[in-house]
Design a protein around this nucleic acid. Structure first.
Length: 289
DNA sequence: GGTGCGATCGCCT
DNA sequence: GGCGATCGCACCG
């Protein structure tokens, strides 16, 4: 498009309008070997072990796990006990093997995608486009993994907003809550998931884990939308397979597929979800039905 | 609101 | 050397 102005250089000094203690932000970065801080986390760590999902949860087929993630809460905890929390509302299944859109297509195993072949629950973090990260979790199946695409922020939004502001233009509009984690790389930025989390175990890591939200029942089948995956258009028939799953009507979903939603509606007429409250900056929406 | 485009660099061939 | 499981921004309607 000739004549349009292009994106300005990002001012990485700008941290937005929410001020967070620099020492706290530093503590978010990857400075510890896996498991190194377990003993120091006791009050918070122990408190949440009762809700934490263990290796049994991750040990299921890829598509099944991708659906099971929806409604669960991803928790990122710092050494000082500060927690960032978000409810998973969108995932994608990458099946490995025959799935040509998967990094592990054809059983191809490289240094980068090794985590996809490790035990179910292993975190696979990889860089994309040179500047972003994406987070996956391995499942049952050789080379299979689930991409976490979007979260609904539940706790720590000011810190998330500051982490996300690092890449944004000076003076840009403050992000709404629903914009903090509505994409795979945004999610990694907002929860400060660094590259060195690659190959860690989501079932046992002291800094990041998954919880069953006691407030939220499992989404009913009619609450799920199965749609084609994002950004895999060049992979032929695998580009159109319905391997992306999200909660219908949730404002934190990154890309809405209206056609897939029409099909989902045609198989189930009931739709009582109301996620409108999360659209405010401070609102906490209630996903119970 | 939707659309188009460039940034930027690790990974793979 | 080419591409990519993305993002933020300007512009348009």
């Amino acid at each position: 498009m000739a004549g349009r102005k292009r994106m300005k250089k990002v001012d990485h000094e700008n941290q937005g309008d929410v001020k967070v203690c620099p020492a706290k932000l530093r503590s978010l970065h990857c400075e510890n070997a896996p498991g190194a801080e377990t003993e120091q986390l006791s009050p918070y760590f122990k408190k949440h072990q009762q809700h934490r999902l263990g290796e049994d949860f991750f040990n299921q087929p890829c598509i099944s796990l991708a659906k099971a993630f929806l409604g669960k809460v991803l928790v990122r905890q710092y050494v000082d006990g500060t927690e960032l929390r978000g409810r998973i509302v969108e995932t994608e299944a990458y099946l490995g093997g025959e799935d040509k859109a998967s990094h592990s297509a054809g059983g191809k195993r490289t240094e980068r995608n090794t985590a996809m072949f490790m035990k179910p629950g292993t975190i696979y973090v990889y860089p994309i486009y040179g500047i972003y990260l994406c987070m996956n979790v391995s499942s049952q199946g050789e080379g299979a993994a689930v991409l976490l695409r979007s979260l609904e922020p539940l706790q720590g939004q000011p810190i998330m907003r500051q982490l996300r502001a690092a890449r944004r233009r000076d003076g840009a509009k403050p992000l709404k809550d629903k914009e903090l984690c509505n994409g795979p790389s945004k999610l990694c930025q907002a929860l400060n998931i660094p590259r060195c989390f690659d190959r860690r175990d989501l079932a046992s890591d002291p800094e990041v884990w998954l919880e069953k939200d006691p407030q939220t029942s499992m989404p009913e089948t009619h609450d799920l939308v199965a749609a084609s995956r994002i950004g895999v258009e060049s992979h032929g028939e695998w580009a159109t397979k319905p391997l992306r799953f999200y909660l219908r009507g949730h404002p934190c979903v990154s890309v809405v597929n209206k056609e897939a939603e029409r099909q989902a509606l045609s198989t189930s007429k009931t739709n009582n979800l109301d996620f409108s409250e999360v659209q405010s900056d401070t609102g906490q929406h209630n996903a119970t039905t």
